[in-house]
Simulated assay, not measured.
Amino acid sequence: MSLSKDTFEQSLRNKSVVELEDLIHLIEDHFGYQVQLTRKDEESSLSNEQKKKLTSIIFKDPDVFNQLSQAEKDRQEGISTYSDSEEEFVQFLDEIKHDK
């Protein structure tokens, strides 16, 4: 598989700096691969399937769900302990509710 210089430059036109994210999108879009990066010193011994199963188990735990519900309530009362990003927090809660 290859990518011509023209295609590469066209994909990144109007960019004075190419970010790693740009290269990942280029690879995914052009070659049809899903790219996941991990730091060499932080390699995970779990497969993606194992991570999905563990995540599902964790978020089906009633205590974890209660903690998230309390965090949502605290957030509504102006106490933020999860994240500085309201959108990120709401998205996270929506994902958890969807998986439950």
Rank of each mutant, 00 (worst) to 15 (best):
E42K: 11
T81N: 13
K51S: 06
H98R: 14
S11G: 05
E86D: 12
V18N: 04
K97G: 00
T81Q: 05
T38A: 14
E95Q: 01
Q70R: 09
H25K: 11
Q76K: 13
E77R: 15
L20W: 07
D6V: 13
A71C: 10
K51W: 15
K97F: 01
Q70D: 10
E19N: 06
E87C: 01
K60Q: 04
G32E: 05
D99E: 10
K52E: 07
T55N: 11
V35R: 09
K100H: 05
K5R: 12
H30F: 10
K51Y: 14
F8L: 01
K5H: 08
K97Y: 01
S45I: 10
G78D: 13
E77D: 14
D6S: 12
Q70Y: 13
Q50C: 06
D29K: 13
E43D: 11
E88G: 06
V64W: 11
H30K: 03
K60G: 07
S83N: 14
E9I: 03
F65P: 00
L54T: 02
K40C: 08
E28C: 11
S16W: 00
I79F: 14
D84G: 15
D41F: 08
E77C: 01
S44M: 00
E19A: 02
Y33K: 08
D61P: 11
D99Y: 11
E19Q: 04
D41S: 09
D84F: 13
S69T: 06
Q70C: 09
I27E: 03
E19D: 10
L26P: 09
L20K: 02
R75Q: 11
Q76W: 08
E28G: 13
N14A: 11
Q50D: 14
I96F: 00
D6N: 12
E95L: 04
L93D: 04
D74K: 12
F59C: 01
E88V: 14
Q70H: 14
F8H: 07
E43M: 15
E28V: 10
E9Y: 03
F8I: 01
D74F: 02
D6A: 13
F59P: 01
R39L: 00
K15Y: 07
L93C: 10
V17M: 00
K51R: 13
R75Y: 03
K15I: 00
I79Q: 12
Q67V: 07
T7F: 12
L46T: 03
I27G: 06
E72D: 12
I57D: 13
Q36H: 15
E88N: 10
F89A: 09
E42C: 15
N14Y: 13
K60P: 06
